[in-house]
């Protein structure tokens, strides 16, 4: 077995979840790596789609931003933001999209904060803000979320709710006026989480090789069901080869 990094493990775990022919909305960094890997692993006919308006780019090199010129090469078409978000809000195409998001904080119902830690008006830490994340989380059929498994990230209450998950659970997402949808999977550097079909609360679904459940629990600040957790298979040699040779030969995201 070759050595792989936790970033590579995260990308592969997410890539395995992407279905064939799905439209994959992705952001920068690890989510792009996951979307690229999916095309070689589980979903050869999936379509990578960027909020900037690029559709089905031929990604010969890994883009460092969703506006990187690398996303504009050999696309089906190069549009703009207005079209891209309308495609996700559209009742026919939106449900076919899987969105990949990341955030600074997540709560038990998969709501995300990528705006600020502390007081909103004068925050202790200010982040980039929504970008397209709130739009994607509001519109698309399902989302996959990347998080780092460290303290302060899995919190009972967000400092700022940037992107909607299941809000307060129990149908509150639909009551707020949002479409069905919401997060399906949270992928971290130690574990994967899913959401209970009824309550929409997060539960531990799997843990990585060599990781103990207690280690994961230490970083989660809300009650978490661990009874359904199973080991997640390690990155295979073939998957690692795909990542390093086909997706990111320059090693920009590891």
């Amino acid at each position: 077995m070759m050595d792989y990094t936790l970033t590579e493990m995260m990308a592969v775990v997410a890539a395995r979840e992407i279905r064939d022919e799905e439209i994959v909305f992705c952001g920068t960094g690890i989510s792009m790596l996951a979307a690229m890997a999916a095309k070689h692993i589980s979903a050869p006919r999936s379509v990578i789609f960027f909020e900037t308006g690029a559709i089905d780019s031929l990604l010969e090199e890994i883009p460092l931003a969703v506006a990187d010129s690398r996303v504009m090469y050999h696309t089906a078409l190069n549009g703009g933001l207005a079209d891209a978000f309308a495609t996700m809000q559209n009742p026919f195409t939106g449900p076919r999209v899987v969105g990949i998001l990341g955030a600074a904080q997540i709560d038990p119902f998969g709501n995300l904060n990528s705006t600020a830690i502390g007081d909103y008006d004068q925050p202790r830490i200010r982040f980039s803000g929504s970008g397209g994340a709130c739009d994607v989380a509001s519109f698309v059929g399902r989302t996959i979320i990347f998080m780092r498994q460290v303290k302060g990230r899995f919190v009972e209450k967000l400092d700022y709710l940037t992107s909607p998950g299941y809000l307060d659970g129990n149908g509150s997402r639909q009551r707020a006026g949002l479409r069905p949808g919401g997060p399906e999977l949270v992928v971290t550097d130690k574990a994967v989480f899913r959401f209970d079909e009824k309550s929409k609360r997060m539960y531990l679904a799997g843990y990585y090789p060599g990781i103990k459940v207690a280690e994961i629990m230490e970083t989660v600040e809300f009650p978490l069901d661990c009874n359904r957790a199973v080991p997640v298979p390690a990155v295979t040699d073939k998957e690692l080869q795909i990542l390093r040779q086909k997706c990111d030969p320059q090693g920009l995201i590891r």
Binding site: Q89, S138, L161, R173, G177
Partner: peptide, 15 residues
């Protein structure tokens, strides 16, 4: 109009 942002702090918190 849009449906983006319903239920979020983008609606609740004004800068």
């Amino acid at each position: 109009p849009t449906t983006s942002g319903l239920g979020t702090d983008i609606l609740q918190k004004w800068g």
